[in-house]
Amino acid sequence: MAETTPPRTPIIGISLKMYFSPSRTASYISSFAPIASAASALGVSTFVIPDFLSAASCAHTLNSVSTPNPSAPTGVGAQDCFWEEEGAFTGEISPRHLAELGIRFVELGHAERRRIFSESDADVARKTAAAVKNSIIPVICVGEVDRDEDNIPSAVAFVADQIRAAVADIPTDAQIILAYEPVWAIGQPVPAPTSYINAVCSGLRSVLDAELGRKESARIIYGGSAGPGLFAELDPEAVDGLFIGRFGHDVKNFEIMVKEIAAKKYA
């Protein structure tokens, strides 16, 4: 008999990057909160990653939202953190301080951070360790730079190396989320082909399960121009959810994707 509950709670999140003002973010969160509660009832966890100016107020709102399913909560993330908890690091954000504000997730290693600020795998690893130390779930962004749909093993190998580096200094049972975002698909009109996403994520799932012992502690979500209709074509055994951007600026689209994930993961 097939399982009626997936081994990992499906999850969908959105990063607002630097698109929304504080007032627009507050309005978005007001509309998002009831969707998050309904998602929990469907068994889907959710999160929003606003800019730093809005993170505290968003956390205050979402952390008080009723989530009928305790295993599918909602929460707020930060768009980055530093690898030290305190000190003379002007402009940086302490993971300890984020945790004090009720921040539950932190996005690390996004392609924009790697490209614009020259962040390395070693930087991501140090930040990941700092987040886990402070009981924050790292959302680790990984993905190959060059598009070559005929060479899936190369993509899997490239991303697997990013993953190995990021998790090298954290316990095997520490909860992590891997946001697989092919760099070449970010900001494009359409996502990567679903057959390609399925194949790469299946390969990464094998690395996580067999090599790294993270079958239950690591979830994989797909990002890179993800929108409504995509998850219906993805392999729920390999992909646990979505990490969305501009296609989720309309909360109605976010709600659609929640329902698509619930329907596929619990089919």
Rank of each mutant, 00 (worst) to 15 (best):
E144I: 12
A199W: 04
P236A: 14
D209E: 15
T172Y: 00
E211Q: 13
R126W: 03
N198C: 09
A232P: 04
I221L: 15
G227R: 05
I170Y: 06
E84S: 13
P73G: 12
Y28D: 06
A168K: 08
V258H: 00
V207H: 04
V251C: 10
H60F: 07
S37M: 09
D161A: 09
D173G: 10
S15V: 10
V44F: 05
P228T: 04
R246Y: 07
P10S: 07
A192D: 05
D146S: 05
I35Y: 14
I152Y: 10
V183Y: 06
Q79F: 08
V190R: 10
G227V: 10
L212R: 01
V65N: 05
P73K: 12
K264V: 12
W184R: 11
N63L: 10
V200T: 11
E112A: 03
I163L: 01
A238Q: 06
Y266V: 15
E237N: 05
A33I: 06
G245S: 02
F247G: 08
L108C: 15
E107W: 00
V251W: 12
A192P: 11
S195Q: 07
V251G: 10
F82A: 12
Q188Y: 11
P70F: 01
I221P: 09
S30N: 12
I197E: 03
D146E: 13
T4E: 02
P50C: 06
K17Q: 06
R114C: 06
M18S: 14
S71D: 11
E216K: 06
S202A: 07
V48M: 01
D169A: 10
N69Q: 03
T61W: 01
R114K: 09
T46C: 14
R115S: 15
F89G: 01
D146P: 00
G75P: 15
G241C: 03
A218M: 02
E260T: 07
S202D: 07
C201T: 07
R24K: 14
A88S: 09
H97P: 00
R214Y: 13
A59L: 14
A157G: 08
Q175N: 15
F89C: 12
F254H: 09
G102V: 10
E211M: 09
S206T: 14
P236W: 06
Q162W: 00
L16C: 15
S64K: 07
T25A: 11
F158L: 10
K215M: 11
V207Q: 00
I103P: 03
R114L: 09
A38F: 13
T61Y: 00
D51E: 04
V258Q: 02
T46R: 03
Y266M: 13
D146G: 02
T74F: 02
A36S: 10
A78M: 13
D169R: 12
Q175F: 08
T74A: 09
T128A: 13
V239K: 06
Y180N: 05
R219E: 01
P34C: 07
S54V: 14
E3D: 12
I221T: 15
P228F: 08
